[in-house]
Amino acid sequence: MALSAQNGEEPEVDLSAAVAGALQSFAQAASLAELKTLKNRALDDKSVLGQAKAQIKHLVAEKRAEVGKRVGAARKEIEAAYQKFENELAEAEAQRLLVEETVDVTVPPERAWLGARHPLDLLIDEITDFFVSLGWSIGQGPEIEHEWFNFDALNLDPDHPARQMQDTFYVDPQINAETQPGDSHLVMRTHTSPVQGRTMVASQPPIYLACPGKVFRSDELDATHTPVFHQVEGLAIDKGLTMAHLKGVLDEFARAMFGPEAKTRLRPSFFPFTEPSAEMDLWFPQKKGGPGWIEWGGCGMVNPAVLTACGIDPEEYQGFAFGMGIERTLMLRHGINDMHDIVEGDIRFSQQFSLTGKGC
């Protein structure tokens, strides 16, 4: 088919065939995007209509208007057809989406479970807030600790049972026939007391320090024990401190953890790092079998040997210290009977505490 005008004559273009071809292709379009592509192809400069329009300027004057009207009419017919098929495809697409995206409100939804902070973290935050409210500092230290801070500075003799491998994790002990446990002098700290030792070595009294943190013991995981657990220990060094000050802090802490009816009592005991020493009992109304006393931790006045080892004059300063397990505190507060629930990481366990409003 000739598409060029010769000597000003009308180009030999079959506009009807071009329109019919465009309409036929529109009818076969499967999507709005495909339909738009076909429309552009039927009307662009390379199409039959586009080339016919381009040749109008080469026609003699009396032919231009007539051919221009025919090209314009063909274009309008293609655009009208496009609009018709576009409406039909849009309607079909809307109906398809209505079917595919229909929501059956009677079907139980699949709930996406949200995460929750572990109750131990929440309790540590609460403990930290309590001691900060007293004006105490919060101390932290390394979990891999030197033997001197973990044992020697705390007046634990080299033959103390706690220093044996059945109780303490030694780091790279290099055990063989010629060496003894502890040759590396590095241990996984067995309590947070080394933080207190480091603070006393680096600071001068007065010192009021609470040390919550992770500790390690060579225990089997069972309902009441775990090899990795958390403690909070407190240390106060100042002039004129007595057991009465210690008892007052413990009673306030007990009330903060267990409510206004909570109270503590002290029973004589022995710890190498305190003298005198005491076991601390908690009055526990929810105790099985009825209200009663239950062991919560240990405490006492800081042994003068510990003060001396850390560079503090025991003739001028006195101190008290205490410590209790955070897992045990959590178990007592919420009636948790099995340590496995705390350490196994089941999200459902943590969610119980995050939804209470109080957190823990």
Rank of each mutant, 00 (worst) to 15 (best):
E9M: 12
A321H: 01
G311E: 04
Q55G: 05
F130I: 08
I127L: 14
T190K: 04
V107L: 15
T226R: 07
T242W: 05
K263Q: 13
L49S: 02
T264Y: 03
P142G: 03
R328I: 04
D346R: 13
Q352I: 05
R117P: 02
S47R: 05
S31W: 12
D172Y: 13
E93I: 03
V48N: 01
G72Q: 14
A94F: 10
M331L: 03
G139D: 11
A22D: 09
I175K: 11
L186F: 15
T179L: 08
K247N: 06
T356N: 11
E178P: 01
S203Q: 15
H185E: 15
D44P: 01
Q196A: 11
E100Q: 14
E79V: 09
G298T: 05
S277I: 06
K39W: 00
H340V: 06
M331V: 02
D44N: 15
K358E: 13
N150R: 04
P260L: 11
P268T: 10
S25F: 00
A54S: 14
F271Y: 14
D313P: 05
E34A: 13
R70Y: 01
I336G: 08
D121V: 14
E10H: 05
Q352G: 13
A309E: 04
V105Y: 13
Q28N: 11
G311C: 09
P181T: 05
A309C: 03
A321I: 10
G21F: 04
V48F: 03
E126T: 08
D14W: 00
R333L: 09
E12W: 02
W136S: 07
M200R: 01
D167A: 09
A309H: 10
E91L: 14
N303M: 02
V249M: 11
G213C: 06
L49E: 01
